[in-house]
Amino acid sequence: MLKTASRSTRSRAAAGIAAAAALVLTLAGCGQDSTSPQEARGRAATEIRAKATGSPAAVDCAKAKCIALTFDAGPGPHTPQLLDILKEKKVHATFFLLGRKHVDTYPDTVRRAAAEGHEIANHTWTHRRLDQLKPDEIRSELDRTQQAVKALTGRAPTLMRPPQGRTNDEVTAASKELGLSQVLWSATAKDYATTDSALIRKRILDQASRDGIILLHDIYDGTVPAVPGIIDELTERGYTFVTVPQLLAPGTPEPGTLYRP
């Protein structure tokens, strides 16, 4: 049990996330086509569109050795410490936020993350498997978090990550309707199952690759302490940390499209 989070929060999140690592190689199944960061960049014009939200300057990932650091299922009690680390390291991340008991419980943390240049994205309202829901339920799960984030930051997310990476045609249709691209991952640490920060760090470093998307969860005790070592080692290896939109630039995320390294 987390010392800093309720039993219900941990059990709910863990139950939904426990199968994530096993799905990494098959996530885009269920008949869903996916687009890689390289393909997204190749389809775009050469001129990078500047954002009006004060997000960090664009990086040319066609030349740089880029990798995206992403965090799911927050914010939580550990998130302010994580933001301190990212600020110190001058790294911007992408946060796929849960609505109930997260966005609505830590509004100041959401505002801070957005103000500091991190990409704020959608991870549904209650972490239900979207591929098991009816179309109106899928839309509600996504739209409630859209509206909650917009109310706090002034901007609705343009990215979403389906719980467990599970998607289907109905999820794609709802995402497209709400202006959301679907984003999966290439590296995960199973941090829902261990508090061993050294192990979390090792697992991510072992899976890191160019144009990769790292999945971690800032709601677990062992994760945030592992982040400085992950950043330092990958920086030493020549990686540049970017947000997911930067990874796709000069392409821009297309609503409904499934992105997977």
Rank of each mutant, 00 (worst) to 15 (best):
K65A: 03
E236I: 08
V171D: 06
E88C: 00
K202Q: 15
P255S: 06
P225S: 10
R139D: 12
L184I: 05
K87T: 11
A64C: 07
L178E: 00
P107L: 01
P157Y: 10
G251W: 01
S55L: 15
A115V: 00
L86V: 03
G165S: 03
A40N: 10
K51T: 14
E88K: 10
L178M: 03
Y220P: 10
M1H: 12
D169Q: 15
K51Y: 14
G238I: 10
V227R: 07
R128K: 11
D84P: 02
H92Y: 09
L98F: 02
D206V: 04
L25M: 11
I214V: 13
L25H: 12
A19M: 09
G165T: 02
A50E: 14
H127R: 00
R161W: 03
I219V: 15
V242L: 04
G16D: 06
A208F: 01
T235Q: 15
E39W: 02
A173W: 04
A115L: 01
T35H: 02
R166F: 01
T53R: 15
F71N: 01
H127N: 00
T126P: 04
L159F: 07
V103H: 05
A64W: 10
Y106W: 12
R7C: 08
L23K: 11
A15G: 13
Q182C: 02
Q182A: 09
G179N: 06
P253V: 00
L258I: 11
K51V: 14
A40H: 01
E170H: 13
T53N: 15
D196M: 09
G229H: 14
A121R: 01
L178H: 01
I214R: 12
E116G: 00
D143V: 14
G16K: 08
I200Q: 03
P228I: 05
E170A: 15
A198S: 12
H92Q: 14
L152C: 04
D218F: 01
D108L: 08
L82G: 02
T172G: 13
G212K: 10
P255W: 13
S11Y: 13
E47F: 09
K134C: 02
T235P: 04
A50P: 15
I219L: 15
G238M: 02
I67S: 06
Q147T: 14
I138A: 07
G29C: 13
L2Q: 12
P77A: 12
E141Y: 10
Q32H: 03
K3A: 14
A57L: 13
A14L: 12
T145N: 08
G117E: 10
A28L: 05
L184S: 08
R128V: 00
N168A: 03
